[in-house]
Computed example of a mutant assay.
Amino acid sequence: MGSILQGKALRLIVAGVLLINGLFPALWILLTSLKSEQELTQKPITWLPESPNMENYFTAFTDQPLHLFLFNSFMVALLSTLLTLFVSVLAAYAIARLNLRHRGLILSAIIAVSTFPLVTLLVPLFEVMRGLSLLNTWTALVLPYTVLSLPVCTLILVSFFEGIPRDLENAAMIDGCTRIGALFRVVVPLSAPGVFTAGILAFVNAWDEFLLALSFNSNPALRTLPVGIQMYQGEFTFPWPVISAALIVGIVPVAILIVLFQERVVSGLTTGGVKG
């Protein structure tokens, strides 16, 4: 009995440490966004703002076109997510259902590709985009983001598709569906948790990406949120309260997305992990 209680206490401690580690940075950014410059730099440091105000949020929208950064990030992330889901669904179905030769080698290659550091791909991708005359366009970001998210999304969906009985597809095809029709009318709806999980992962990856967005787009009208936030700093000044306000504005859409679909995402991650 004592060992069981000790095990539960240890799990609670570990869970508490992980929770604090995950929430503290966001909480500190939120508190900073409600402070003034003077209050932020005074000593000793005050944890809570003495007179919270929303002035930094108004400044974040007036000093820089934050609404434009948000729009660009949303459109790029949405388009890349839709394209990623479409391609990964087809790829995962082929791996899970078709009798492919060297299936294990294909899966190993997908895993290997997903481990490449992004910085090693920067120059080749830049040369490709320049050769295609796609620099300073949304497409220059949508295509690389799709490629970068495909391995993980494909592996997630393969795990789900393999758990769906083939008889359901066969019944749909007997009723007149083509194989593609059975895929999108039967397999994909039954794999909804996996599809939502893959979609949210692809969206968050595209929403947060900085290096490619900085390198491929020099047009101020096409800046995404991560690149736009760095525009708030001057040559010798770092307005952390305003930057923090912009960061909170950028966190909110992703937080809302995760809250709305958290049950499907948790179900997708746990079910996929068990099946995998």
Rank of each mutant, 00 (worst) to 15 (best):
L148R: 06
A15E: 11
V254I: 14
A109N: 03
E209H: 01
L157W: 04
T115H: 08
Q64F: 03
G16E: 12
A9T: 05
R97I: 05
F61V: 07
L183A: 02
A112W: 00
Q6N: 12
N21C: 15
R97K: 04
F61H: 08
C153P: 11
A192R: 09
V186T: 11
F24N: 01
R223S: 10
A96S: 15
G131T: 07
W138N: 15
L269M: 14
L150A: 09
P226M: 09
M129Y: 00
P52N: 09
G22C: 12
I110D: 00
I156V: 13
I4K: 12
R11H: 13
Y57V: 07
R166Q: 14
N99R: 14
L68N: 11
P25H: 11
P165N: 02
L125R: 08
A94F: 00
E162N: 04
N72F: 08
L10I: 15
G16N: 15
D167R: 11
M231Y: 09
T270G: 04
L23I: 14
T120M: 06
S51D: 09
P25T: 07
P144G: 03
I251W: 04
S114Y: 07
S114P: 03
I13P: 00
I4Q: 08
L260H: 01
L107M: 10
L214E: 03
Y145C: 00
A172Y: 04
Q64I: 01
L90V: 12
Q233M: 05
D208F: 03
S33R: 08
L134P: 05
I106G: 01
V142P: 04
K43L: 15
T154C: 09
A255Y: 10
L78D: 02
E127P: 01
A246K: 14
D175L: 13
S3H: 08
N56K: 08
I13R: 07
P239S: 13
T270M: 13
I156Q: 07
S133R: 10
I20L: 15
E263S: 13
S73P: 12
T120I: 11
F160S: 06
